[in-house]
Amino acid sequence: TFELKGKVGKVVKIAEDHYLVESEGDKWIAYSDEKLSLGDRVMVVDVDGLKLKVKRIP
């Protein structure tokens, strides 16, 4: 299986209740415990079905 946990991506869209993150050339629906901005670099900390939980990284 394709393992996304630990992968790095970038926030490419902000929606009302989720983010769109591009990682490894694909776009994924993501959510975070912190507020993210367009262009933020993020790391995948968990995968919930087809949704990614991400956190901001420097």
Rank of each mutant, 00 (worst) to 15 (best):
T1V: 14
M43S: 06
K13E: 11
V12G: 05
Y19Q: 02
L52W: 02
K5L: 15
V12I: 11
K35Q: 09
L36D: 00
V21G: 01
G6M: 01
K51R: 11
R41E: 14
E24W: 03
T1N: 15
D40M: 10
V54H: 01
K53L: 12
H18V: 13
K53T: 12
L36W: 01
A30Q: 00
P58C: 12
I14H: 07
L50I: 09
L36N: 01
G9Q: 02
L36T: 01
V54P: 00
H18L: 13
G49H: 11
R56N: 06
G25V: 04
R56V: 07
I14M: 12
L52N: 03
E24H: 03
L4Q: 15
G6C: 06
V8R: 02
K53M: 09
L20Y: 13
K51H: 13
L52G: 02
L20G: 06
S23R: 02
K10F: 08
G39W: 12
L38A: 10
D40V: 09
D26F: 14
K53A: 03
K13D: 12
H18G: 12
K55V: 14
M43W: 04
I57L: 09
K27R: 07
V21W: 15
K7F: 04
E22R: 05
D40L: 06
H18P: 00
V11I: 07
V47Q: 06
K27F: 08
D33L: 08
G39A: 08
L38F: 11
E16I: 12
K7D: 04
V12C: 07
V45L: 09
K10Q: 08
G25P: 04
K13P: 00
K35Y: 07
E3D: 04
A30I: 02
Y19C: 13
L52S: 02
D46F: 03
R41K: 05
V47Y: 05
I29D: 10
K55L: 12
L36C: 10
K27D: 12
G9E: 01
L4E: 15
K55F: 05
K5G: 14
E22Q: 05
V11K: 00
Y31S: 11
V42D: 00
K5Y: 15
K5W: 15
L52D: 01
K51T: 14
G25A: 04
Y31D: 14
W28A: 02
V21H: 01
V11S: 00
K27A: 06
W28E: 01
K51I: 14
K5V: 15
V8K: 05
K7N: 05
D46E: 05
D46A: 03
S32L: 02
K55H: 12
D33Q: 08
E34N: 06
W28P: 00
P58W: 04
S32C: 12
V12P: 00
I14T: 11
L20D: 07
S23E: 04
H18D: 11
K35N: 07
D26T: 08
V8N: 04
F2Y: 02
V54Y: 01
T1E: 15
I29A: 12
V45A: 03
I57S: 08
G25F: 04
V21Y: 06
L50P: 09
V44S: 02
V44T: 02
S23L: 15
L38N: 09
D40R: 02
I14F: 12
F2K: 15
L52I: 10
Y19H: 04
D33N: 08
D40K: 02
V11E: 00
A15K: 09
G9N: 01
K51E: 12
G49I: 07
E24P: 03
D33E: 08
